[in-house]
Nucleic acid binder design. Structure first.
Lengths: 137, 137
DNA sequence: GCCACGTGTCAGATTCTTCTTACACACCCG
DNA sequence: CGGGTGTGTAAGAAGAATCTGACACGTGGC
């Protein structure tokens, strides 16, 4: 019966909390139309840079966008962001399944090992299977 | 082929914000295992009734659960809750599409009539789909 | 050197959400 | 009639999220 791989409760929770915000939704929408760098994006959607920075950080932590620092021909460092090819199915069973592996995140939980920051876990029919290595950041 | 009906931005936003909470996720999970009434559910998941009441209200507003007030044989009024057969696909395009119809409106109530709130977009494996009626607030 | 552009981060105020406590009512049973 | 069950709601504290402003740094061009 379980056709698709269920995401961990913490992961799904982070994704939903990240997407459950009008500004962040708009950011993802703007990024879905094409990649952009922080200041340009801030101008496009009319938001202060520090605020956009926070939202982008939240989205990146949830694995919904990825940022790459590039150097323009002028030599200026510009951080480009683009949407990650995520795909989640939101159904009662999926939520129930995820809630099973839901760890009541303690205020201090990350001691040794990966901080649980994982992006792709092919949930839906997204054949996109770029391998994912766990990098201990 | 974009034959699928996209949810309104406000609707998707409400759903994501409602599900982006560990307690509410657990509530949906508990309710997916079977219907229950408020006090019983509060005992089952170990939560105070007023708090559970608030969370249930939030979930019901988002259209994720439905509550029906029934009378037990003893004559006691008991409010039973059960999960609504919702189904949302969370992809970059879906978010972008929803963000297009995102009204950043004030806490003031909506003007009139039932807005086009559509829940089922059967792209995931979920057979049964009885449509629910729209209840404003 | 100074300014325009890019980056990141911090402190503080504000606003929202969450949670507890306490109250209101209705019904049944001893 | 008091005590058990069920319901709903309101006030206020506690906490987390949001947002603004100012600061830091680096590079290219006048």
């Amino acid at each position: 019966m379980g056709a698709i791989e269920a995401p961990s409760g913490d992961e799904l929770l982070k994704v939903l909390a990240a997407l459950g915000n009008p500004h962040r939704m708009r950011i993802v929408a703007a990024l879905a139309g094409g990649r952009n760098y922080v200041s340009g994006l801030a101008r496009e959607i009319g938001m202060s840079r520090p605020l956009l920075h926070m939202h982008l950080q939240r989205l990146e932590t949830a694995g919904l966008v990825v940022g790459t620092l590039e150097l323009s021909d002028s030599g200026k460092a510009m951080k480009f962001f683009e949407v990650a090819p995520f795909g989640y199915a939101l159904t009662p069973q999926a939520v129930a399944e995820a809630a099973r592996t839901l760890t009541d995140q303690a205020p201090d939980g990350k001691s040794a090992g990966a901080p649980g920051r994982n992006a792709q876990h092919g949930k839906t029919q997204h054949g996109k299977a770029s391998d994912e290595k766990e990098e201990t950041q």
